[in-house]
């Protein structure tokens, strides 16, 4: 059973919803009541400077971190406190910042790890190698020796093959060339069209605004602004470059 199977039970509920989440590391609160909702088929871009709490938000949503208060809802069901591995098996795919792959495993072995989410290996390989031909050429290469772009493609291939209900992406474009970023966001848009709720965290990127349906700016553990990307973009330029 996956989240998409549950979804109809609560009509109209967004696939991913955070309700007044607070979170703390070692007694220091870093999220002070975050509300976010990502309906099916929607890409929400979460933007903001370093230390704003974006990665913490992702950690809460994927189950690696338990909120000190507030609720995580998936398809209307309260999943706060569920383990990351259980959420992953329900169809939540998370690609953490800069380390979405196992560097000492080969490409093929990395893909094998995607099968825990309940998809057969044949399918994973087919999807991955069709969409990213370069991965097919390097299936027996150790992933740590791939270029940065290829590594992110490998990480994204998992998101693509699993056909997730919720996709959480942290700094997908970090350190990558613009062309590669564009290709990766093409994949993000493609996944969204299949009905997945996508939460993308980026520090700087106009590219993500191109594919996002909704953008939120986070500062100091709070959502500062939320709205259509074009409105947010102006606010961002101001925030980052002081124009």
């Amino acid at each position: 059973m996956t989240l998409q199977d549950i979804a109809p039970s609560v009509p109209g509920a967004p696939l991913l919803e955070l309700q007044s989440i607070t979170a703390a590391y070692g007694g220091i609160e870093v999220l002070h009541g975050v509300d976010l909702a990502v309906p099916a088929g929607t890409v929400l871009a979460l933007l903001g400077p370093n230390g704003a709490g974006k990665t913490t938000t992702i950690s809460i949503a994927c189950g690696l971190l338990t909120p000190t208060s507030g609720k995580v809802l998936m398809a209307g069901t309260d999943v706060s406190g569920a383990s990351a591995e259980d959420l992953a098996r329900l169809g939540v795919v998370t690609i953490p910042e800069g380390k979405g792959i196992f560097p000492n495993l080969t490409v093929k072995e990395n893909l094998l790890m995607a099968t825990y989410a309940g998809v057969p290996m044949d399918h994973v390989e087919e999807v991955a190698y069709t969409r990213f031909a370069r991965l097919g050429e390097r299936r027996n290469q150790v992933a740590g020796t791939l270029s940065g772009g290829e590594q992110q493609m490998l990480a994204m291939a998992r998101g693509l093959a699993v056909n997730p209900a919720v996709l959480l992406l942290d700094e997908l474009s970090m350190g990558l060339a613009p062309l590669v970023v564009e290709e990766l966001y093409g994949v993000v848009a493609q996944i969204a069209r299949e009905g997945t709720s996508i939460l993308v965290v980026e520090q700087f990127a106009r590219t993500v605004l191109g594919v996002a349906d909704l953008a939120a700016v986070m500062v100091n553990g709070r959502i500062r602004a939320l709205g259509p990307p074009d409105e947010i973009e102006n606010e961002l330029s101001a925030a980052y470059l002081g124009v």
Partner: peptide, 28 residues
């Protein structure tokens, strides 16, 4: 990408196209 793409006083950097592109991605 590991290279200095621009340098100068704050004004000239702020108005530099390459800098804006680097920060916000390859433009819309």
């Amino acid at each position: 990408f590991g290279s200095v793409i621009a340098s100068g006083d704050p004004e000239s950097v702020r108005s530099n196209e390459a800098v804006v592109a680097a920060y916000l991605g390859a433009g819309t």
